[in-house]
Design a protein around this nucleic acid. Structure first.
Lengths: 240, 240
DNA sequence: TATAATAAATGTATTTTCTACTTTTATTTT
DNA sequence: AAAATAAAAGTAGAAAATACATTTATTATA
């Protein structure tokens, strides 16, 4: 059970905490996508306080470290991944958000490919993927962070091709649609979806098919980053 | 009358700064709207360091204070206003952003009505309104904050009725259009603009006219917050 | 080896929204 | 009474969003 007085160094929060100090932390909302639904990487705390409780993965921001670097550091420690899509969500700065000491946290959300991360490393850290529609209770305001991140994802996915960060490099149109359905939380018309996606000309059709979900197989595509960048620079309005 | 506490090191940054401490500050990007263009409230520093330089208005976040409260406190100190529209922009967390000491800053932007604030108070603080298209050089990364806030304003104004926060309670359609033109940085077709705005049914037409810019005069309107809230709750997609 | 089954892929017609443009209206000034 | 001026409103054509039905490639099976 959590007790305020027993302040001990904690796994990722490995500083000695003082009551009269302002701490700056970052928490990572790490999303993946698999089997038609979004997954969140959660972390079962192995040490006091809040031992056994689920939380996001976080860390204090070190004195000589950028806030964004802190998040990248944590993400790499847990998943082995670098060069991951990661963006600031917002600051959680309510004075009493952490009962132990004064700590603001900058939430940062990451989108990773579930076929790329280091599974062993994740396991070693006691981290587990949960379906976002079936999350356990999370410590502090972490559930709020997740909800905010999901909202943000909905907004951002519409105007920026961040969905592709959650799919393997090669993906099919039905897979892409399934992802967008998971993000938007609603079904999409497959003809209209395909039409719209293709209209942007930022997908490269490959000569391979994925036959994992149909006899006929669906063509694989790659996202064309270069063409996308050019379009955006010339003022193109990308929207899915 | 307001007097700067001359014995303290820095006006609003009135802490004793240590090199090995992490500081948390907030900076306010305060916008107003007048004569067809957006204005930014800037602050001429009267004390060292950086005396005489223009900067945004900010403060350290106190230990017992929410991050959002810190911004509200500053805003009230300078403008006398409470209940102002204010939202987090983003965190500025690069390790060496401030050469003096380690300090992250949470940028928060505010939209205020230029007919409502306390002009004397603003003047006492050495604060000056600048046209956003003709800004002086600002200290540190404050210019970046302003640019980011303007981008955010562009995005947000489209889907949320935040523009109304910049206009007097009573305004005309041409004034509203002029505001949107300033935010979007482009001219809009007046017929189409009016059509679109009116289609949402969130403006209450008054029996008064504003004749300041035409012989005929333009009808004044009020924004209907209640109807707007109802629409949003029922899933309405507001867009201007 | 023909056919049943299945998801992928495509086409089209209708509705809605966006855009571009022109005219009328209310009021004041001369 | 006429000129001037910004406010206000209508309409037609283009583009985008939506809703709906059929064909196609492939494998499994009868």
């Amino acid at each position: 059970m959590y007790k305020e007085k027993e302040q001990e160094p904690v796994a990722l929060y490995d500083f000695y905490q003082q009551k009269d100090k302002m701490y700056v932390a970052t928490d990572c909302i790490i999303f993946g996508f698999d089997s038609g639904s979004l997954k969140l990487l959660t972390f079962k705390r192995r040490v006091e306080p809040l031992k056994g409780e689920w939380s996001l993965i976080g860390s204090f921001v070190k004195l000589e470290e950028d806030v964004s670097s802190a998040a990248k550091r944590v993400l790499e420690e847990i998943t082995g991944l670098t060069n991951v899509f990661m963006e600031e969500l917002k600051t959680y700065g309510v004075a009493d958000r952490d009962p132990g000491y004064r700590c603001i946290s900058i939430g940062q959300y990451a989108l990773i490919r579930l076929n790329e991360y280091d599974k062993e490393l994740v396991e070693q850290h006691g981290a587990v993927w949960h379906d976002v529609n079936d999350l356990p209770e999370l410590v502090l305001d972490h559930r709020q962070m997740v909800d905010d991140a999901l909202e943000e994802l909905k907004r951002k996915a519409r105007y920026r091709p961040i969905g592709f960060e959650l799919l393997p490099e090669k993906f099919t149109i039905p897979q892409l649609q399934s992802l967008y359905e998971a993000i938007y939380q609603k079904e999409l018309d497959s003809r209209n979806f395909r039409k719209k996606v293709m209209s942007h000309n930022v997908l490269i059709k490959l000569d391979e098919k994925d036959k994992s979900s149909s006899k006929r197989g669906a063509y694989l595509y790659k996202f064309d980053h270069d063409t996308y960048e050019k379009l955006i620079r010339s003022g193109y309005n990308f929207e899915i």
